Computed example of a mutant assay.
Amino acid sequence: MNANVNTGAEAKTPPRPEAAVARGGSRRWMWLGALVAALALLGGTFTYFNTNAFAEDRLCHGWLSTDEARDVLGGSLGRLSARDDSPWWCTVERSGWFPGADEGRLTLRVQLEAEDFPFQRGLWKVSGDMHISAGAGPGAYDAWSGWTLLPDACTSELRAPAWAGGETPVIFGSVTEKTSPLAMARLLNSAAGTIAGSTLCGTQVEHETGGGDRVDTPSATARTDFGDVCGIPGFKLGKVSGPRGEEVQEQTSGTLNSTGTDWVCDLSFKNDGKNGPFTHLAVVQSPRLVAALKNRGFERTQCNGREVVFAHDDLSYPWDPKERAATGMPDVREMSELFATAAKKALGCAT
C-alpha cells in the first residue's frame, strides 16, 4: 500500500520559528521608532513654545539679551517674544503652555524728562525703598519698575518724536509681575550701555554706567531716633508724631560717605501706606544728578573735591501748613537747614 495517501487536503507547512521572531522584532522596532518620533515632536514643541532655542538672542532693537529679559520676567520656562512699538519703545512678553510658564510682560521706553529728573517737586522718582545705582550712571529700581539715565548725547535724537519733552534722557522699565530689583538694575544698565554705544544717540559715547551690580539695597524700615534722624549724627528734630499720634519711621538707601555716591531717606508715619512718606531727603553727589538740580535752589557745597547737593521735598504729602505744624515738624526752610548742616558735618565737608 502506498503510504502517501491523499486525504483530500494538502498538509499545511507550519511557520518557521525564526520568521515569526523576525516579524515580531520588526513590529517592536516600528513601535519604538514611532515612540521616538512622538517624543522628538513633543520635545520640539515644548522647546519651541517654552524656550527661545530657535529665536534671536537679542530683543528690543538689540537693547537686551533674552537671558536679561528672562531674569527680569522670572523663571527659565516660557517663550519670549518682543514687539518694537516704536524706535524708543518695546514690549517683551513671556508665554507658554507648560505648567509654570506663567505669562508676564516687560515694557521698556526711552524718553526725555524734566531737567530736574528725578527730583521734581512732589514727584520724586528715587526714594528710601528703592535700590540705587552706586556709580556715575544714576538709576533707581524696585520690584515693579526702574530707570537709568542715558548720556546727554541722546537728547537731540529724542527731540524728534512728538511725544518727547524735557532735557534729560532716561530709559524706563516696568513689569506686570513682581521681579528682582537687582535683575531690573542689570537689565536697564546693560540696555543703557548698548544704546549709548550705538548710533541711536547720534554718536557712539561711553556710558557712565553703575554696572548693574554696584547697587545699594534699601535698609529695613526703622523707628526714627529724633536725636539722629535718618542715622545722621547731630540731625535732631523735636518730638514728631502723626495726625493721630502715629510714630515716625524712616528708611534709607544708598551710602552716606565722601566717595561720591548718592543717598536718600524717607520719613513716614507708621502704617500710613495710603499717603506714603511725608518727607524725602537726599545727599546728591553723582555729577549727572548734581547738574540736574542746578536751578532748584537747594543748598550745595564743595566737599572732598566734589560738589554736593542737599535736596529736600515734602510736597507729595497731602497736608496744609497748619496740619504740618500740628505734627511737630519744623517748616520747610528750617528742616532744610537742619538737614544740610548735619549732613555736611557727617561727610566732613568744610562749613
Rank of each mutant, 00 (worst) to 15 (best):
A143Q: 14
Q251P: 06
C201M: 04
W63K: 07
P99M: 04
C303L: 03
G254M: 08
P318V: 03
P87R: 07
P17Y: 01
L182H: 09
R23D: 01
G260N: 11
D129G: 13
I171N: 07
G24D: 03
L80K: 09
G33S: 13
S268I: 00
G78Q: 08
T148C: 08
N50D: 15
T194V: 15
N304V: 05
P287I: 04
P118F: 05
A350Y: 03
T107L: 09
L35I: 13
G135M: 03
G242F: 02
G165D: 13
A183P: 04
M329T: 05
L64T: 13
I171P: 05
S219Q: 12
T351I: 03
R223I: 12
L237E: 04
G242I: 10
G135I: 02
N275T: 04
M30L: 14
I132C: 06
F310V: 10
R223Q: 12
F298S: 08
P87F: 09
A55G: 12
A40Q: 02
G74V: 07
L182K: 10
T224Y: 01
E334V: 13
G104W: 03
H280L: 01
A342T: 12
K274L: 09
Q251V: 15
T155L: 09
E10C: 00
T51P: 04
E323D: 14
E177V: 15
P287Q: 11
E208A: 14
A220M: 08
D102R: 15
T255F: 07
T261D: 15
K236S: 08
G166T: 00
E334C: 03
A19Y: 07
C265A: 06
P17Q: 04
L73R: 06
S76D: 12
H61L: 02
E18F: 07
P218Y: 07
Y48Q: 10
A3N: 12
G260Y: 09
C349Q: 05
T259P: 00
E334I: 06
M335L: 14
